[in-house]
Structure formats: structure tokens, C-alpha cells
Amino acid sequence: MQPDLVQIQDATVAFGRVKAVDAASLAIQPGETVGLIGESGSGKSTLARLLVDLVRPSAGQVRFDGRDLATLDGPARRAYRRDAQMIFQDPVASLSPRMTIGRLLAEPLQIHGLDRAQAWPGVLELLRRVGLPETVLGKYPHQVSGGQARRVGIARALVLRPRLVVADEPTAGLDVSVQGDLVNLMTELQRDFGLTYLLVSHNLNVVRAMADRFAVMYLGQLIEVGPAQTIFTAPAHPYTQALIAATPRLDPDRTQSHTLLAGEIPNPNDLPPGCRFQTRCPLADAHCRAVEPPETLLGDGRTVRCHKPLV
């Protein structure tokens, strides 16, 4: 087994009293895709931002290629920032409206002091690889379609030839007729450029088409981490099970079973005692309401935070 590209060890990110990420540990292998799933407010975007140095842990560590990010000096940090790139959720909002797409693609080269003339043929090749015509180079982000803007966001993330790409909801808001194209493109780019992906999404179907492993977050904690196929066919945490059951699917015969959760997601300012999921869990008992479940390693290699795992 190769050494991990990314290791998050007991990382906590606190915003005031709220721990957006609470003692999370996750390792990512080179070339792997980890799908990070969770509902809004679960901390998945904050965890993703830890990997690209947009937030720093208030406790714990994030290691990239074996080195603790907190200890990186100037040049090493610059090199790491080239190696770890992010594809943002809303490409039009994340791209400057005052720059042409050509300038947007050249900007990372400039920031990292690369020779533009030398790097430009590679940029044009990348443009072709993501399926954009060269005519977009003179346009502004708002002048291209939603699907094309996503492709610009992907190309911009790849200009510096990173090793890790963090994609935050890469297909959110896209029509289903173009969603498949984008997923296929990301899969091909991963193969061709040897990329490692952390894919953040609340769309379980898209994550399933891309991820080797799932990491499920609930209120700041990773509550289940393991092989995607295993988790999808037999979830261990009752929350994961509810999330899978809740994913709407085309079902003309209405055979889909609905294990509905009762109740709402608790306020992160006012977490319940014991297990964080106890307010909505159909299996919760007195023990769950009093004692927070530790992270437990199951026989099949996944970790789960539950007193009563389903497998």
C-alpha cells in the first residue's frame, strides 16, 4: 500500500463555540476518490477547505505527503498550494467577472511565477481536454453556459498540474442532461493526470458514480468511513442508512422503502448529550442519549461512530 497523500488527524475547526469539524480523522490514498457526504451545516465544506489551506485546524493536524501543513515554510507552502487545488461550487461566482477566461487561466501561472509563454501550450491542451473551444478565451465568465463555466473552473484548477483536487458540489445546479458529461470528464481527467479527488456533495448518486470510499459527516463528526460499495449496499450507521433511503430515485412502481427520519437537525450551538444523532435516530436508547459513541473499527475495515451499528 502506498503512503497516504493526505492525512487528517483529529482535526478540529472551531468558529467561536461551534466546532464545524470536531476531531475528524481521514486518510486519502494517491489516485483515490473520497466522497464526503453530509447535509448542510455538517461541516463537509470546512473539512474540504482544511485540505487546501483555506482554513487551519484549531487542534489536530493535516498532513500532505507526510508533512504537517502547520510546519511548512514559505517555499514549501507555495509548492503545496500548487499541489492542492479546489473546484468551487458556483463557478461563475468564484471566477472574477472582470477577467476574460484567458486571463483567468493564466493567473495561476503568474501567481506561481511560471513562464507564461512556456506554459501556454499546456493550457490550450487542457482547454481542449475539458471540452472547451478556444473561442471562450476572449469571453467573460457570465457569457458562457453553466456547463461551460464548470469546465472553466475545472481547467483553472488543473492549470498548475496539482496532485489533489478538492471539488465542492461540482454538479450542484446542473441539469441532469449535462451532469453525466461532467462526471465522465472528471473521471477521465483523474485517470489522465493521476489526480486524487476529495468530492464534496450531498448528491449521493453523483458521489456513488465517482468515489472509491465514502466519508459521511454529521454535525462536525465523521460518523462512517469506508469502501463506497460496502457502505452503499449495507450502511452501518443509521444516519447513513436514512440518507441512502432518502435519495430520490425514479421509481414508477413506487417500490422504494421510506425509512423516514423524524425531527430536525439539531442546532450546532446546542448539541444534545451522548450521540449527536440521538434526536433523530430510530434506534436510540438511554445509553445513546448519555454516552457519545467512540470511533469504532468494524471487521470489514470501515470506521463508524455508533453504539448500535447495523452490521
Partner: peptide, 22 residues
């Protein structure tokens, strides 16, 4: 449009359907 729905047996790396053009 129905073909673009991601089926339950889709796993990592499977090619997804889309509708070409705009």
C-alpha cells in the same frame, strides 16, 4: 432524460449518460 438518471447499480468509473448539445 430517463437514461440520465443514475441507476442504483452504478459504481465508480461507470460512464454516465447525458444528452449531447444544448
Amino acid at each position: 432524460l430517463i437514461a440520465c438518471e443514475i441507476a442504483d447499480d452504478v459504481t465508480r468509473g461507470d460512464k454516465l449518460a447525458s444528452i449531447p448539445g444544448e
